[in-house]
Amino acid sequence: MTQHDMRRIALQTLYLANQSQDPDVEEICIQAQKALDIKKYPEFSKSLVEGVLKHKADLDNQLSKFIKEGWRIDRLNQIDRAILELSLYEIQNSSVIEPVSAVNEALNLCDEFSSPKSKAFVNGILGNFIKKN
């Protein structure tokens, strides 16, 4: 299984988690494993999900600063929100992937799960974090 595949699993798990009030990492990973029909939930995916959920409030706060005035993070399309949270977490915390590569991964996830308009939006938001660092 490639790292892209494991990010895809993490993204789908975060999407499920965003549907819950206070998701438990273990439980949400089990739900995703069943929903995605995978034999074993990847540790890399679990570490991403765990990190995003642990830092969710901070990630959403940071992302909110770059969203159009008058919009709130909770008004975003749920899959785009999950892509942004996952990618920003990786940009700030990963020793496995470079920030520019994390943005490219986010854009690949947009190609699979979102729209061209969302892809440009995600690129613009994440690009702001790359410029800051």
Rank of each mutant, 00 (worst) to 15 (best):
Q12P: 00
V49Q: 14
I97W: 08
L86R: 04
F66L: 02
V25C: 14
N18M: 05
S94I: 13
R81G: 06
Q62T: 06
E50L: 09
R8T: 11
L11G: 08
K65M: 09
E50S: 14
R81P: 07
W71T: 00
K46E: 10
R81V: 01
E69Y: 02
V52A: 08
R75E: 09
A32Q: 07
A82F: 07
Q33H: 04
R7N: 12
D60H: 12
H55G: 06
V49P: 13
Q33P: 05
D60M: 11
N61S: 07
D74V: 11
Q33G: 10
E50W: 03
I9F: 05
L76T: 05
M6Q: 15
N18P: 02
C29W: 04
R72N: 11
R7C: 10
Q12C: 02
L48Y: 07
G70Y: 00
I30E: 15
L48S: 12
P23E: 13
K68T: 13
S20K: 03
L14T: 03
Y15F: 07
N77W: 10
Q21I: 09
A82D: 10
E85S: 02
E69P: 02
Q62M: 03
L59P: 00
D58Q: 08
S47P: 03
Q31H: 11
I28S: 06
L11E: 07
Q19E: 02
N77Q: 13
I30R: 15
Q78P: 10
R8D: 14
I28R: 09
L76I: 03
L86P: 05
L16C: 03
N18K: 06
K54C: 00
R8Q: 09
F44Q: 04
K34T: 13
I30S: 14
D22Y: 11
D74F: 07
L53Y: 11
F66W: 06
H55D: 15
